[in-house]
Design a protein around this nucleic acid. Structure first.
Length: 419
DNA sequence: TCTGGGGTCCTAGGACCC
DNA sequence: TCTGGGGTCCTAGGACCC
């Protein structure tokens, strides 16, 4: 059987952990730049605040209902996440960390009745150990486990755990389960299925596999099989290396001064390079992009991108930053104010398997030592202790007007709270 | 004034090879 | 008058996820 543990309203729950006065009140957490809503408490959901809603559209509601608002604090959430994941990992044969707030549980070799007891107790233990409420669903495939988890959130009676494995139970659930809520069925496929008279998971399951494959390709067919208790996705314990690494950001305002965009790109590249080294990778292709605000009416719009193939696969921040800055400065157009830019490393390979160019003139050993020192210093003294000159000393400001302290990772902030 | 960020997989079609 | 067959690789775009 396949289990899925999913933290309830994760980012909001993290904020509440250190600020219990938020319990019982509507709370939301915002995306980068305080742009839109990415996590909501039950109370906020009840007020009709939707996922992804832009903040400016609900300003009045927030004031009227006294909704508590937080900027996203990923340093905090990441730290809490690993505590939750550790608690889960200790309780079952193995786990697959699927996202910051979800993990699949391998329950191989455990009897059904035993599983029921185990997950009930585990949901309780996670809450007790970490303070984060978590829902655990169990069924015959990952897709069905997803549904079981959703049931926990709909029916408080279940006490945050739900095991369904008998065909009769599953049939009953699928009859009521909206097709658009099934894992793997997004907006487009839901619309297409609705047009064909399919509104519930049960309707979908009774379609012919040939039809499903012809309309929704192999991925759709896998979802169909999974709902029919035929697992197509296994639990992956070892997270594979990333195939692409991306860092991008919207700016608080349109940047007409292109020096500022270039500085931001230098910073994004530095971040990508750090992530790249963390998985012992080297990159041989960089994609850069920058665009103007697509929501702004009546202004000239611009979307620029450039692909830069590298002769020598590398993980060297200095080389990468200089290449990226050179590239981006070529594509920015005079007179345009850029709202967002980003850097994507594609074509990533393992450093050990790198084939060095015959003509490369640098000293790879020296470079590797330099990068190790850079990472060591920044790990010990904070991320921006050593930076490249092109990043500039002053960061481009983003809006983070409602940030909570870094309760778990910064002594400075912890002391502030204590004082 | 104000609209997130970071990923994956699959497919079709074009370029190119012998 | 007549112009093959069988591949691979690459890329863009569409779908999805949290």
């Amino acid at each position: 059987m396949y289990g899925l543990a999913d933290c309830n309203n994760f980012y909001v729950s993290c904020e509440r952990l250190f600020n219990p006065s938020l319990n019982g009140k509507p709370v939301i957490v915002l995306s980068n730049n305080d742009g839109c809503v990415i996590s909501r408490s039950q109370e906020a959901k009840r007020l009709g605040i939707r996922m992804g809603e832009p903040l400016f559209k609900i300003k009045d509601l927030i004031k009227r209902e006294n909704v508590k608002v937080f900027s996203s604090n990923f340093a905090l959430y990441g730290d809490i996440s690993s505590r939750v994941m550790n608690t889960l990992a200790m309780a079952v044969p193995s786990t697959e960390v699927y996202s910051i707030d979800e993990a699949f549980l391998n329950l191989e070799g455990i009897e059904a009745e035993e599983v029921k007891k185990l997950v009930k107790e585990l949901a309780f233990r996670v809450k007790k150990n970490t303070g984060i409420p978590v829902s655990i669903g169990v069924s015959n495939s990952k897709t069905l486990a997803k549904i079981a988890t959703k049931l926990c959130k709909i029916y408080p009676k279940l006490n945050n755990s739900c095991v369904m494995y008998r065909q009769k139970e599953i049939d009953k659930v699928l009859k009521k389960f909206p097709i658009e809520d099934v894992w793997g069925i997004g907006r487009r496929y839901s619309q297409m299925l609705n047009r064909n008279g399919v509104t519930t998971a049960s309707d979908f399951v009774s379609l012919s596999p040939v039809w499903v494959k012809s309309k929704m390709k192999i991925t759709g067919l896998k979802t169909w099989k999974e709902l029919n208790s035929e697992p197509c996705f296994s639990i992956e314990e070892n997270v594979p290396d990333k195939q692409q690494i991306c860092t991008s950001r919207s700016f608080a305002k349109d940047l007409y001064n292109h020096e500022e965009v270039i500085m931001a790109v230098a910073e994004f590249t530095t971040t990508c390079a750090r992530k790249l080294r963390a998985q012992n990778g080297v990159v041989s292709r960089i994609l850069l992009f920058a665009y103007t605000n697509p929501f702004k009416e009546g202004f000239y719009r611009d979307y620029q991108s450039a692909v830069i193939p590298l002769e020598n696969p590398t993980d060297n921040t200095l080389n990468l930053v200089s290449i990226a800055c050179g590239g981006i400065s070529k594509i920015l157009k005079k007179g345009y104010g850029y709202k967002k830019a980003g850097v994507i490393f594609t074509e990533i390979s393992r450093k050990q398997e790198r084939t060095a160019s015959l003509f490369y003139e640098g000293d790879l050993t020296k470079e590797a030592n330099l990068m190790k020192s850079l990472d060591d210093v920044n790990l010990k003294y904070g991320r921006d202790t050593l930076v490249t000159a092109s990043q500039g000393v002053d960061k481009i400001k983003s809006n983070r007007n409602n940030l909570s302290p870094r309760y778990t990772t910064s002594w400075e902030d912890i002391i502030k709270v204590i004082v």
